[in-house]
Deep mutational scan, measured.
Amino acid sequence: NQESVVAAVLIPINTALTVGMMTTRVVSPTGIPAEDIPRLISMQVNQVVPMGTTLMPDMVKGYAP
Rank of each mutant, 00 (worst) to 15 (best):
N1L: 15
N1W: 08
N1V: 08
N1Q: 14
N1C: 03
N1S: 14
Q2C: 02
Q2K: 15
E3D: 11
E3W: 11
E3P: 11
E3S: 11
E3V: 12
S4I: 02
S4G: 04
S4N: 02
S4V: 03
V5A: 06
V5W: 02
V5K: 01
V5Y: 01
V6T: 05
V6R: 02
V6D: 00
V6E: 04
A7T: 05
A7L: 02
A7R: 00
A7H: 01
A7P: 00
A8W: 10
V9R: 08
V9Q: 15
V9S: 06
V9G: 05
I11F: 02
I11G: 00
I11A: 00
I13Y: 06
I13Q: 14
I13C: 03
I13H: 07
I13A: 09
N14E: 05
N14A: 08
N14Y: 12
N14D: 11
N14G: 09
N14I: 02
N14V: 02
T15P: 00
T15K: 12
T15M: 13
T15E: 10
A16E: 09
A16S: 09
A16L: 10
A16W: 14
A16H: 15
A16R: 14
A16V: 08
L17I: 05
L17T: 00
T18A: 12
T18Y: 06
T18K: 13
T18G: 05
T18N: 08
G20M: 12
G20R: 05
G20Y: 05
M21E: 02
M21N: 11
M21A: 06
M22S: 01
M22N: 01
T23E: 07
T23Y: 13
T23D: 05
T23S: 11
T24M: 08
T24V: 07
T24C: 03
T24S: 12
R25T: 06
R25C: 04
R25I: 05
R25P: 01
R25V: 05
V26M: 15
V26Q: 14
V26I: 15
V27C: 03
V27T: 09
V27E: 05
V27I: 07
V27F: 02
S28I: 05
P29R: 12
P29N: 05
P29E: 06
P29A: 12
P29F: 05
T30P: 14
T30N: 14
T30S: 15
T30R: 14
T30W: 07
T30E: 11
G31A: 05
G31I: 03
G31L: 02
G31S: 03
I32P: 00
I32Q: 00
P33L: 05
P33C: 04
P33I: 08
A34Q: 07
A34M: 10
E35A: 10
E35V: 15
E35F: 09
D36T: 07
I37E: 04
I37K: 11
I37T: 07
I37C: 03
I37H: 04
P38W: 08
P38F: 11
P38E: 09
P38M: 14
R39C: 03
R39T: 09
L40F: 02
L40Q: 00
L40G: 00
L40W: 02
I41T: 14
I41V: 07
I41K: 05
S42V: 04
S42M: 06
M43E: 10
M43G: 04
M43C: 04
M43I: 05
M43L: 13
M43F: 12
M43S: 06
M43P: 01
Q44L: 12
Q44E: 10
Q44M: 14
Q44C: 03
V45L: 06
V45G: 00
V45I: 06
V45T: 09
N46V: 04
N46P: 02
Q47M: 10
Q47G: 05
Q47P: 00
Q47L: 12
Q47A: 14
V48Y: 10
V48M: 12
V48H: 13
V48A: 10
V48Q: 14
V49T: 04
V49E: 00
V49W: 01
V49G: 00
V49Y: 01
V49F: 01
V49H: 01
P50K: 06
P50H: 09
M51C: 03
M51W: 09
G52V: 02
G52T: 04
G52K: 06
T53P: 00
T53I: 07
T53R: 09
T53Y: 10
T53F: 05
T54M: 07
T54I: 08
T54F: 03
T54N: 02
T54K: 04
T54Q: 04
L55R: 00
L55F: 13
L55V: 11
L55H: 00
L55E: 01
M56E: 08
M56C: 03
P57E: 09
P57I: 05
P57F: 08
P57N: 07
P57Y: 08
P57H: 08
D58H: 13
D58T: 15
D58K: 12
M59L: 04
M59C: 03
M59Q: 06
M59I: 03
M59F: 11
M59Y: 10
M59W: 04
M59V: 05
V60L: 15
V60R: 00
K61F: 14
K61L: 11
K61W: 08
K61V: 10
K61H: 07
G62V: 05
G62N: 05
Y63G: 04
Y63N: 04
Y63H: 05
A64Y: 08
A64W: 12
A64G: 14
A64R: 14
A64T: 11
A64L: 13
A64D: 13
P65N: 08
P65E: 10
P65A: 13
P65D: 11
P65H: 05
